[in-house]
Amino acid sequence: GSVVKEKKEKALIEVRPYVEYYNELKALVSKISSSVNDLEEAIVVLREEEKKASEPFKTDIRILLDFLES
């Protein structure tokens, strides 16, 4: 629970300088966080969101995924 939350919060802070739609990304992460149990599940849902998103938000999600998977 809290470790996953920390990882996601740290990821958002780390990617902030590189993303165009930070507030939207943060809102998406919050929405996903409330419906998943762990980081792996969150990553799966983020990948689905990435497929549906259009640029440049798609790239923002990709940047976040790269950080979460590192």
Score class of each variant (00 low, 15 high):
residue 1 G to L: 01
residue 1 G to Q: 12
residue 2 S to T: 09
residue 3 V to L: 10
residue 3 V to S: 14
residue 3 V to E: 13
residue 3 V to W: 00
residue 4 V to N: 12
residue 4 V to I: 12
residue 4 V to P: 07
residue 5 K to F: 05
residue 5 K to P: 06
residue 7 K to P: 08
residue 7 K to I: 15
residue 7 K to V: 15
residue 7 K to R: 12
residue 8 K to D: 07
residue 9 E to H: 06
residue 10 K to V: 10
residue 10 K to P: 03
residue 12 L to P: 02
residue 13 I to C: 14
residue 13 I to Y: 01
residue 14 E to W: 01
residue 14 E to F: 03
residue 15 V to A: 07
residue 15 V to W: 01
residue 16 R to T: 05
residue 16 R to F: 15
residue 17 P to W: 08
residue 17 P to L: 05
residue 19 V to G: 03
residue 19 V to Q: 03
residue 19 V to S: 02
residue 19 V to C: 12
residue 19 V to F: 06
residue 20 E to H: 10
residue 20 E to M: 10
residue 21 Y to A: 10
residue 22 Y to K: 00
residue 23 N to T: 10
residue 25 L to T: 00
residue 25 L to R: 00
residue 26 K to T: 12
residue 26 K to Q: 09
residue 26 K to N: 11
residue 27 A to K: 06
residue 27 A to M: 08
residue 29 V to F: 14
residue 30 S to W: 06
residue 30 S to Q: 13
residue 30 S to P: 01
residue 31 K to A: 13
residue 32 I to P: 02
residue 32 I to W: 02
residue 32 I to C: 12
residue 33 S to C: 14
residue 33 S to Y: 11
residue 33 S to A: 13
residue 34 S to N: 12
residue 34 S to V: 09
residue 35 S to N: 11
residue 35 S to H: 11
residue 35 S to T: 12
residue 36 V to L: 06
residue 36 V to M: 05
residue 37 N to L: 06
residue 37 N to M: 08
residue 38 D to Y: 09
residue 38 D to L: 11
residue 39 L to H: 05
residue 39 L to E: 12
residue 40 E to K: 09
residue 40 E to F: 10
residue 40 E to S: 10
residue 41 E to L: 07
residue 41 E to K: 06
residue 42 A to Y: 13
residue 42 A to I: 15
residue 43 I to G: 02
residue 44 V to Y: 10
residue 44 V to F: 07
residue 46 L to Q: 00
residue 46 L to I: 06
residue 46 L to V: 02
residue 47 R to T: 07
residue 47 R to S: 08
residue 47 R to K: 11
residue 48 E to V: 07
residue 48 E to L: 09
residue 48 E to N: 09
residue 49 E to W: 04
residue 49 E to A: 05
residue 49 E to I: 04
residue 49 E to S: 05
residue 51 K to Q: 10
residue 54 S to T: 11
residue 55 E to W: 06
residue 55 E to D: 09
residue 56 P to Y: 04
residue 56 P to V: 04
residue 56 P to Q: 05
residue 57 F to H: 03
residue 57 F to N: 01
residue 58 K to F: 01
residue 58 K to S: 12
residue 59 T to E: 05
residue 60 D to G: 06
residue 60 D to Q: 02
residue 60 D to E: 02
residue 61 I to F: 01
residue 61 I to L: 05
residue 62 R to A: 10
residue 63 I to Y: 08
residue 63 I to A: 03
residue 63 I to S: 03
residue 63 I to V: 07
residue 63 I to C: 04
residue 64 L to T: 02
residue 65 L to Y: 02
residue 65 L to R: 06
residue 66 D to L: 11
residue 66 D to R: 08
residue 68 L to Q: 00
residue 68 L to W: 05
residue 68 L to D: 00
residue 69 E to V: 10
residue 69 E to F: 07
residue 69 E to D: 12
residue 69 E to Q: 11
residue 69 E to Y: 08
residue 70 S to L: 09
residue 70 S to E: 11
